[in-house]
């Protein structure tokens, strides 16, 4: 099942992230985002024995001439190696995106695998108009509010990203 992360899960989330990535950089990022109050949506996949997957969304602002859009950056997403290729990542993304929609956010931005994320509605085309530290086919976005990404704007990540 997919549920909200709680402080009791933090050690297990660190274990998932360090097992899924070759260095602790992603685990450190998550802890820094939390410490700075920027873990806006944090979910875990748990089949009864504690977290085996996790996803985090942090606040992302898109500044346009007419308004500032309240959006989210999806990063990181991880599933323990022993439980990969079973659709858990997809369930985390679907639940997380739904939560962002319920929060009234305008869009979600991700830097990720160019074949995987389009399955969940993300596309590099949607991110094309944005003025961001990234570009190319790995930099993708999903508009939750229709038309949110058609007028460009400057992207500001949470401080912990360091970009």
């Amino acid at each position: 099942m997919i549920r909200d992360a709680s402080p009791a899960d933090y050690a297990a989330i660190r274990a998932v992230l360090t097992a899924a990535f070759p260095t602790p950089a992603e685990a450190d990022l998550v802890e820094r985002l939390r410490a700075e109050g920027d873990a806006r949506v944090e979910l875990v996949a748990d089949e009864g024995e504690g977290p085996i997957g996790c996803i985090l969304y942090s606040p992302l602002r898109i500044e346009r001439a007419d308004r500032v859009l309240d959006c989210a950056a999806l990063a990181p997403l991880a599933v323990s190696p022993a439980f990969q290729n079973k659709g858990l990542g997809g369930r985390l993304i679907e639940a997380g995106n739904e939560r962002c929609r319920a929060l009234g956010l305008c869009a979600i931005v991700v830097l990720g695998h160019p074949v995987y994320y389009p399955r969940f509605g993300f596309s590099p085309e949607a991110a094309e108009s944005l003025d961001a530290p990234f570009s190319g086919r790995s930099f993708m976005a999903l508009a939750l509010e229709p038309g949110a990404l058609t007028a460009g704007g400057k992207v500001h990540y949470a401080r912990a990203f360091g970009v």
Partner: peptide, 9 residues
């Protein structure tokens, strides 16, 4: 940190 994170991920 960002260099390291982008490199890793």
């Amino acid at each position: 940190e960002a260099f390291s994170r982008l490199l890793t991920a």
